[in-house]
């Protein structure tokens, strides 16, 4: 024995999971989506993603080092995840300086002002995206066409997203059946052959990531499944009432940011509730608000706003939705 014995309170053994391993797991889960996006949007994906990730990591490092004067913790990978998720929620032709602005905002205002990892009430990537959406509405809603403009970055040929086409058409008083020519079929939607944010288009890639996250026990099924089920049933009811002016539920769950929102954004560990019952309530809220914004609101897409709104309710949900305690209470002694 070369050293003095170590003494610490029990337990004396610990599990394998670390913050780093969780974040690495999320990054791995995002790889299929990234590859699919590179295939669909080409060079734009590469530029947007790398700019966002590098800026996020750098911002976190600089803030920790020079503003907070704390240990720098960029090694845990949470800034990389934020950068990836932010990039995946942007169009692939977004000018680089806008991405930098968004990334700095996401990390600085979305995360570090609250004290860094674990203390932020809102998902930083969504904070960044919504900030950009409000500040640069034109750039943030010009979507490159899939496959066709793979070799272009800022000057890619743009088109509308399926949700945008639908919203615009309905606003002009057209029936959905008239629009069907402009909207890709379900299989194309499922694979990701459509305009949209670079990470949101391919449902199959996102589902692959979901399976990985479940397999690695990084998240539980509750939030994604309940969000998707809620959106499906809510839009299903609307569709059954009036199929002429309401899109089918399958269309709704395959378009826009619903998949990436449900699987990667809403399940952000920091900003989602702590108990299973709380998670279900939270997911229910996200689903309902998403549909309300999509169908009745001014924006064609509402997942980001829905998640932000429900993020705000998380502390309240945690306060009221307690886990089921072991054993009923009795007066004793």
């Amino acid at each position: 024995m070369s050293q003095l014995l170590t003494i610490s309170p029990s337990p004396h053994v610990f599990g394998q999971k670390t913050v780093k391993s969780l974040m690495t797991g999320v990054i791995i889960a995002l790889i299929p989506t990234f590859l699919m996006s590179v295939f669909i949007f080409g060079i734009g994906t590469l530029i947007v993603t790398s700019v966002a990730v590098v800026t996020c990591v750098l911002t976190e490092y600089l803030i920790q080092k020079y503003l907070m004067h704390t240990e720098t913790r960029i090694g845990d990978g949470s800034a990389i995840v934020t950068g990836l998720l932010l990039a995946f929620n942007l169009p692939s032709n977004l000018p680089w300086w806008i991405i930098i602005l968004g990334s700095v905002f996401a990390i600085g205002i979305g995360k570090m002002v609250y004290g860094g990892l674990g203390n932020n009430p809102f998902n930083p990537a969504i904070v960044g995206r919504v900030f950009l959406l409000i500040s640069f509405p034109v750039q943030m809603t010009s979507w490159p066409l899939p496959i066709a403009s793979r070799m272009q970055y800022v000057n890619a040929i743009t088109g509308a997203t399926p949700l945008g086409i639908m919203k615009e058409g309905l606003r002009n008083g057209e029936a959905l059946t008239d629009l069907s020519g402009q909207i890709p079929g379900h299989m194309e939607l499922f694979l990701g052959h459509m305009s949209g944010s670079l990470g949101e288009v391919s449902a199959i890639a996102l589902l692959l990531g979901f399976v990985w996250l479940l397999y690695k026990r990084i998240i539980t099924w509750h939030i994604p499944v309940v969000i998707i089920a809620t959106v499906f049933s809510f839009t299903g009811i609307l569709w059954l009432i009036d199929p002429v002016h309401n899109a089918s539920p399958v269309f709704h769950i395959l378009t826009g940011g619903l998949m990436i929102g449900a699987i990667f954004m809403a399940t952000d560990l920091v900003t989602s509730p702590m108990t299973k019952a709380g998670m279900i309530l939270y997911a229910l809220g996200i689903g309902i608000i998403t549909v309300v914004i999509r169908v009745f609101g001014a924006y064609p897409e509402g997942v980001s706003f829905a998640i932000l709104i429900m993020n705000a309710f998380v502390p309240l949900i945690n306060r009221t939705m307690k886990p089921k305690r072991f054993g009923k209470e009795v007066k004793y002694g």
């Binding site: 913050v19 299973k276 089921k324």
Partner: peptide
């Protein structure tokens, strides 16, 4: 490291408590 509110402690607690 800082708590990332992953709720793993809540889900493993055999007494249904919230350790965090």
């Amino acid at each position: 490291e800082p708590c990332i509110r992953c709720s793993k402690c809540v889900s493993v607690c055999p007494m249904g408590l919230e350790p965090y």
